[in-house]
Simulated scan of single mutants.
Amino acid sequence: MEESEGSLTKPVAVIACIAMTLFYVAILYAPTLILRLPPPQSFNSFMIRRFICAAVSSVASVIFIALILPIRSMEASYLFGVYGIRSDHLWQAVVFPLFLTSLMYAGSMMFKSMSLVNRWKEHRNQDGQMFFDCVKNILQSFPGKMLSVTSDILFWRNLIVAPLTEELVFRACMIPLLLCGGFRAYNVIFLCPTFFSLAHLNHMREVYSRHNYSLLKASMVIGLQLGYTVIFGSYASFLFIRTGNIVAPLVAHAFCNYMGLPVLFVQRKGLVTVAFIAGVISFVWLLFPITRPDLYNDRTNNCRCWHGYCSWS
């Protein structure tokens, strides 16, 4: 790995990451505080305005990194490769990280499965419907439910906009910067989530004011959220560095947003706890084998400093 390429240093890399973090958060408030735009008329308008701000921040960060990194070629495929935006090994970057991430939610999926079975049993006892009739009803109602979900602004925030913009800024932009600044891969995995968690401190004000929580309760809620973002940020950084593909942490991010916090324990449902423990053990066992750099890359040697997977070969 070429850590000495160019004139980028560790302090410059850290300062640049802090600047991108502050800009990512600050621009969310720019429409009202700087542009003096009137307050949005609805929640959907408010979220769309934030989507635009996040997109502007992401594009600005991509341009900023292109100017600061020692990039010698302006070829499109080369530039996209800097940020892990690649078309090769695409199915591996989707399937393997998604499967690996789902193992941490084995307890959650067991709980959901048991709930669905219980609901079907109750429904069958009431209406006398057979299993295949229930499946038929579910399939018939599926298009309407999908339309309802995709028209929900929170769906776009949690599964599309937030994963895309956050992974682009906090993984695709910051990790190459830190690697080229001379930080080792293991250090980046734990350093990068620090910036990611700091970007969520703005939620403190929203939780405190909107939900009318006490300062102590709001601090506890945000503390839990920050702890979760640090853990997930480390995992997402690990995926990006190991695979060299932005799709890997992107699908993991969207999946985690959809599932929420993993279910660890449910009273009188011991199978949920057993499934969770089995999932954690499987996750730890498969973490390195299923993220081997050679599964996602044709070459794992003689590459640039922003291609972190080179240091793992």
Rank of each mutant, 00 (worst) to 15 (best):
L295W: 06
L116W: 13
G227N: 04
Y208W: 14
Y186G: 09
T291Y: 02
S58E: 03
V12A: 15
R171W: 03
K136Y: 15
M110S: 13
A278T: 09
C53H: 01
A16G: 07
Y258E: 12
I241Q: 00
D88Y: 03
S45N: 10
P163L: 01
T273G: 09
C134E: 15
D127G: 06
F155T: 05
I85H: 00
M204P: 03
I189S: 04
T150D: 01
D294R: 03
A76I: 07
M47Y: 05
F170W: 03
W120A: 14
S197C: 13
C173K: 00
E122M: 09
R50A: 12
L295Y: 06
T21D: 06
V25L: 02
L69C: 03
A278V: 11
K10I: 14
G84M: 00
S219H: 05
L116N: 13
M109F: 15
K121E: 14
N187Q: 15
S61R: 00
I222P: 03
Q140T: 10
F64T: 05
Q92W: 04
A60V: 11
L147M: 14
C17D: 06
T300R: 01
G308F: 00
G260K: 05
A76T: 07
E122D: 13
M20H: 07
Y83C: 01
T273W: 11
V169Q: 02
M114Y: 11
V82L: 07
K10Y: 10
G279V: 05
L69H: 02
W306H: 02
V82D: 02
S219L: 08
L261D: 12
M146G: 07
K145L: 15
Y235T: 06
F190L: 09
N212V: 10
H123K: 14
S4T: 14
S197T: 15
V230N: 10
F142V: 13
W120M: 12
F265G: 08
V149N: 11
L216D: 08
S148L: 10
L67S: 11
F51G: 04
L22S: 10
R242D: 00
F183A: 01
S102A: 14
A236Y: 06
Q140F: 12
T194L: 15
W120C: 09
H307T: 02
S7W: 07
M259S: 12
G84C: 00
S108H: 08
A278F: 11
G128N: 04
M47Q: 05
F155N: 04
R119A: 15
V272H: 08
Y235K: 04
M130T: 14
S148K: 13
W91H: 11
F240V: 00
N297A: 02
V161I: 14
N137V: 09
I222A: 07
G107D: 12
V263K: 07
I27L: 07
L201F: 15
Q92H: 11
F288H: 10
I18C: 10
A199F: 12
Y228V: 11
M104G: 09
C192R: 01
I160A: 03
S237T: 08
Y24C: 02
N302H: 12
L159C: 09
P70M: 01
R299Y: 06
V272I: 14
V25I: 07
S102W: 01
V56L: 13
F46W: 13
R299C: 04
F43E: 11
F43H: 07
V135P: 02
I189V: 15
I71Q: 05
A30I: 03
L67Q: 13
S115H: 09
L198M: 14
I18D: 06
F80D: 00
